[in-house]
Design a binder for these strands. Structure first.
Length: 856
RNA sequence: GAAUUGUUAGCUCAGCUGGUUCAGAGCGCUGCCUUGACAGGGCAGAGGCCGCCGGUUCGAAUCCGGCACAAUUCACCA
């Protein structure tokens, strides 16, 4: 006996282990066609959030359906070492213990990091389990695994040998907290209240000075020139003169360069080649010195004299004070400007001249644009991908971290060697830096399958079928997977890329730690169950669109599952004697409701499949929902209660089984529970076949939809006139001969739903003025309600119906008389309108007749 | 500055290749409550010039252009 209420905790308990024990997540059945989804590897930095839940549930839904459809479905799990992110966490952990990574040394530090990884990967696997993800753990991968490292080294070495990887001195974005370089897309530009400082640089030849505007005065210790626009008349006299860097004895030249915007600031610019990308370009053009005035940790170096060792922003403040006192500060103007912040540590990044490794992007990007076969869903994301590829810059891939893939390059004096192992001979030292995390994730679709070896898995499961991810990492990840795959496997990494949106809070704000508005998926699961969460998250938005988290929506999902639970409860209670036995549908015994519901079910299956194929999970769910709640629970089950035959029980079990199969991708746990209770022969719903249209389609049931309209209208009358169901009423139904036979066959339902006293069904019924009339095209109903009937109101109601019908008739006729319509519209549409018109006219006549009767 | 998305019921959102009975769902709201699973339920109901202005079309919530507002991303200049 099932509980009256759906209890997710009880239902979900033990299911995952059951699936695992029966190896239901395993791939490798060579008799089937392969279908592959590889999980976007979560960072081993912490717990999974709702964004992962969304991502993973979509993947799991797709894979569960494919598995039921008879594919050899591989859903491959794995995690990302997440260089900076993890190292930041481990550093913070050490800091709590009062030590730094330098106290431990590289080797010991990595031990701590691996321990961290083990701990967090356990959490993550636990969360996957809670969400019910059907992952094949025998193929789980980690980006720092030996096999993957091999792939990464090969890619680096090949790109190096092809000349796509180079080492160069460039201005990169420097994170002073993590003390590493970052790539351009790891920077977040935040609009900040800043200041423009107007500073006097004294000329070396006299008392005069030039005024320069800057937002970063502390970088002046790294200045190597002052520049003006060559055609700026105001400053022609300054060309080639020299100034002192304020507060110092350092002399720098005044140069000219067209880069200067005459209108901005004072029209005079300081040039700091080692701390600004534009100035760096100027420095190159003019062969300037490029001195760094800061250390790696963001403190000032010896160039800043007395400020040496001072943190950069403290220095800025004190320097400004000093300039003020020396009368070298003209003014401070407050401005709003965008300041780059590190995505990981949130500190202001310092543009810094540094020797780093880069991937040359022009050729790779060109290839990706020309050869990518990936179809994005929704399509518009392809444009975003293309736009980015078209304006891409070289990718800085070296990171001054310890946690990651150490760069396979060796140095001996001036010699450089790129290879997995150090060359023979003494004195070769490996590059200290590691690779950007995304360098390894870019290879994920094939490195996880054993590439570069020609493994059976790689041959079978590559390219992947679908990649599912959020639009926020198209640049970071999707784009890079595509160009690396094209370069190294000569094909696109996956056929389709399904992009979903971001989870927001109920006010539409991004969920973030700083706002404290994040919601832990596990809390939701504990309260409402994983199935409720999965259903909510995959059905409440359309593809590519963001989703607001609202607890009421989860509750609503729970409520739906509770409904399914209760329909199942009824089905199981009422069909106990046939459960577990083999039974087949016998069309010869079908009643009208049987034919009606089976027809609808078959149509539902077709429509749902179509939506599933296009990843329209919300639309598919809506159809299943309506079918389940309205067609099945409210109508069919109610009608079925009047019959105790094996046939009826067979139909109800058949329909329910199909419903839970269709819902299984959304809510695997509860559908498994119900499936088990239905004593079906398969060991698990996962082993059962995905529903197919069984071909039993009874078109005539479509034409009988008016039967339900009839019942509803009479119910409405009961409501309007406040005649409760328990009070029997007379029903006089006038209709055609054919319909009479149909109604008489099914009068048990009329009795059940409408509780009639006297029920007359005939071609001509006696009408009285004191009856309510319901006039439909197929039938008319008269309900004598005696004194309750207000004839004037009845007349008003009929007149309203009449004028509505008139409008429709006019509309139809106008359409059908329009040569533009009849010549251009599809024939089916024209026929449809003709049928409608006939129906309206017939209906109109009946209403008119009734009106006359009442008016006389 | 550029690109993308959104604007539909009180709220949150659907509405796929245009088809008029295509204006929908959930929540909320209003009546009534009785049925062999479900009161977190049942039955019924109210509620919308589909942001604004043009265009294409026989026909536009749907396609195109412009505008307004909102969000996001990218690019930004000392």
């Amino acid at each position: 006996m099932m509980d009256k209420k759906y209890n997710p905790a009880e239902v979900e308990q033990g299911k995952y282990d059951f699936w695992l024990e029966n190896k239901l997540f395993s791939s490798g059945d060579l008799s089937k066609k392969p279908f592959t989804i590889i999980i976007p590897p979560p960072n081993v930095t912490g717990k999974l959030h709702l964004g992962h839940t969304w991502d993973n549930t979509l993947q799991d839904m797709i894979i569960r359906r494919k598995r039921m459809q008879g594919y050899d479905a591989l859903y491959l799990p794995g995690m990302d070492h997440a260089g900076i992110a993890t190292q930041a966490k481990v550093d913070a952990l050490l800091k709590k213990q009062g030590i730094s990574r330098y106290d431990l040394g590289r080797e010991e530090y990595l031990k701590v990091a691996w321990k961290w990884k083990e701990e967090y990967s356990t959490f993550i696997r636990e969360q996957w389990k809670i969400m019910g993800l059907s992952l094949d753990y025998s193929k789980e991968r980690f980006t720092l695994d030996e096999g993957l490292s091999k792939a990464i080294n090969k890619v680096f070495i090949d790109l190096y040998n092809k000349g796509y990887i180079y080492r160069g001195e460039r201005i990169i974005n420097w994170d002073v907290e993590a003390k590493t370089a970052l790539s351009n897309i790891e920077i977040e530009h935040i609009e900040t209240e800043g200041a423009l400082y107007y500073i006097k640089y004294p000329l070396t030849d006299g008392l005069d000075s030039v005024t320069v505007a800057t937002t970063r005065p502390e970088t002046m210790f790294g200045d190597s020139a002052i520049m003006v626009h060559p055609e700026d008349e105001r400053f022609k006299h300054l060309h080639n003169k020299e100034v002192y860097i304020p507060t110092t004895k350092t002399k720098i030249r005044i140069i000219t360069d067209k880069y200067v915007d005459k209108e901005f600031g004072t029209g005079i610019v300081k040039v700091t080649p080692a701390h600004d990308p534009n100035d760096f370009a100027v420095g190159k053009r003019h062969n300037l010195e490029m001195p760094l005035c800061m250390n790696e940790d963001g403190t000032m170096n010896q160039l800043a004299y007395k400020y040496e060792g001072m943190e950069r922003f403290v220095c800025r403040k004190q320097l400004v004070e000093e300039l003020k006192s020396l009368n070298l500060l003209v003014k401070i103007e407050s401005i709003k400007h965008n300041v780059g912040h590190s995505e990981r540590t949130n500190v202001v990044v310092e543009p810094r001249l540094s020797k780093q490794w880069f991937v040359k992007m022009d050729e790779l990007a060109k290839n990706a644009l020309e050869k990518s076969q990936v179809s994005f869903v929704p399509e518009r994301f392809e444009k975003i991908f293309n736009n980015w590829m078209e304006s891409i810059e070289d990718w800085c891939i070296s990171r001054q971290l310890w946690w990651g893939h150490q760069i396979p390059v060796w140095y001996k004096g001036e010699e450089i060697y790129c290879g997995e192992e150090a060359p023979l001979g003494e004195g070769w030292i490996q590059d200290n830096d590691v690779l950007d995390t995304w360098f390894s994730s870019a290879l994920w679709p094939f490195s996880t399958l054993g590439w570069p070896d020609k493994t059976a898995d790689f041959e079978r499961y590559y390219p992947n079928d679908v990649m599912v991810t959020g639009y926020d990492i198209i640049f970071f990840w999707v784009a890079r997977m595509i160009f690396q795959a094209l370069e190294f496997t000569n094909e696109s990494p996956f056929k389709e890329c399904l992009i979903h949106g971001l989870i927001r809070d109920k006010d539409g704000r991004k969920m973030s730690k700083s706002l404290g508005n994040g919601v832990d998926p596990i809390d939701i699961v504990n309260q409402y169950g994983a199935d409720s969460l999965r259903y909510f998250i995959t059905t409440n938005s359309s593809p590519g669109q963001d989703l607001r988290y609202e607890e009421e929506k989860i509750l609503s999902s729970w409520n739906y599952i509770n409904k399914i639970w209760n329909i199942s409860r009824y089905t199981i209670m009422s069909s106990e004697d046939i459960l577990g036995k083999s039974f087949v549908l016998k069309p010869s015994e079908f009643t009208f409701p049987d034919k009606w519901i089976i027809t609808k079910l078959n149509k539902l299956i077709d429509d749902v499949d179509n939506y599933f194929d296009h990843y329209e999970f919300g639309e598919a769910a809506k159809l299943i929902y309506n079918f389940t709640w309205n067609d099945f629970a409210s109508w069919y089950v109610e009608m079925a209660k009047l019959s105790d035959t094996v046939n009826t029980k067979t139909v109800i079990v058949y329909v329910l089984t199909n419903i839970i199969k269709l819902l299984h991708p959304y809510m695997p746990f509860v559908t498994e529970e119900i499936f088990q209770k239905l004593l079906t022969k398969e060991v698990s719903i996962m082993k059962s076949a995905w529903p197919v249209n069984n071909g039993m389609v009874y078109e005539e049931t479509q034409e009988k939809e008016w039967f339900f309209e009839l019942i509803k209208s009479i119910r409405t009358i009961r409501n309007d006139y406040q005649v409760s169901w328990s009070k029997p009423i007379d029903l006089l139904i006038q209709t055609s001969k054919d319909n009479i036979a149909f109604l008489e066959e099914n009068d048990q339902y009329i009795k059940k739903f409408l509780n009639p006293n006297r029920l007359v069904i005939s071609e001509e019924v006696e009408k009285t003025d004191n009856s309510i009339s319901i006039i439909l095209a197929a039938a008319q109903v008269y309900i004598p309600l005696g004194s309750l009937v207000n004839v004037d109101e009845e007349i008003n109601k009929l007149n309203l119906q009449l004028s509505n019908l008139e409008k429709e008739i006019v509309r139809c006729e106008k359409m059908l008389n329009n040569p533009g319509f009849t010549s251009k519209a599809p024939q089916a549409k024209i026929d449809e309108e003709k049928v409608k018109l006939d129906k309206y006219i017939e209906n109109y006549k009946e209403v008119k007749t009734r009106l006359k009767e009442l008016e006389n």
